[in-house]
Amino acid sequence: MEHWFSWLDSYTEGIVVGVAVGFFVRLRMLRTDYRQYPTYLHGQLIHISLGFIAAGMGAVAVPALIEKQYTAVTFLALAAQQFREVRNMERETLDKLEQDELVPRGASYIEGIALAFEGRNYVVIMAAFLSSLIVIEVNLWVGIVLGMVLVGVAGLLRSGKYLGQIASVELGELRMEGPSLYVNDIYLMNIGLADNRKRIMKHGIGVVVSPASKDSRITLANLGQRQAILHDLSVVLGIFRDTGEPSLIPLSKRDMEDGRLGILCLPEEKDVEKVLQVIRSVPVLESAVRIPSEDPTKQFRRGGKSG
């Protein structure tokens, strides 16, 4: 009888530690920042609850496997289904909110956010699984230490690259040539009314973003990435814009010769340093990343077969 108890104990310990680690990993990766998403409390509650469920699944999978209850693993497939649903939910919500934004996020940004939500639940499952496994197979304390390490690592994994790491961001000079608006030598748009020209020259700030490499050149060309820059600017620094003012629109155009990006921003507070800082810390969207520098002809030269 005592033997049976000690067995149950190590399982219970494993599950408890696993759930706790998974839960803390989710908490650590859930952050409300300037993007204001998830919004306070209600959005967070949803994700904390889902994180808890994910942690439970990861933690319980270990005893199930040890007991040779292999069918229990099929529940993980169910979990995957569930979390794909989370991604859809996020996408739908953000898509709906998009209509109410003066400067929309853009589909790529939304997809990136939705992907992150799904992916983070899998990280939670893995963290819970690992720590539960270690508690049951090694001992309680090693499992707890590993759990703490995992929570720390999750914090590091949370953020990806920033625009400042793949491109240089500099102030540019806005100028009008007849009806044409330029930032340095990059053409932006045609503005008809003298009134709008005056307002854009007064409130606008021109910025030139130059790609640092062949890879980042393609990332900067991506329309979703460009929209993300404009959206982040409007969120952090406000936007000098309203409905019925179609000419006051922040936008970015590309110099097709060298891949530089000319940006017109219309911040409410005209603080040049802040504008540059915000653009440097725009996240690089996963969907905008391409790696042409990984030359595909290399594979052919090696004579390797594809597939």
Binding site: G178, P179, N190, I191, G192, L193, A194, D195, N196, T243, G244, E245, P246, S247, I249
Partner: peptide
């Protein structure tokens, strides 16, 4: 011309572009 274009821009929510010295077009993007 400038005044009419200004009013129409607000009414139609379209952007005013200058085509040449004497012509504006209002475009909804």
């Amino acid at each position: 011309r400038e005044d009419t274009a200004f009013l129409l821009e607000k009414i139609l929510d379209g952007m005013v572009h200058q085509l040449n010295e004497s012509t504006f077009v209002i475009v909804h993007h």
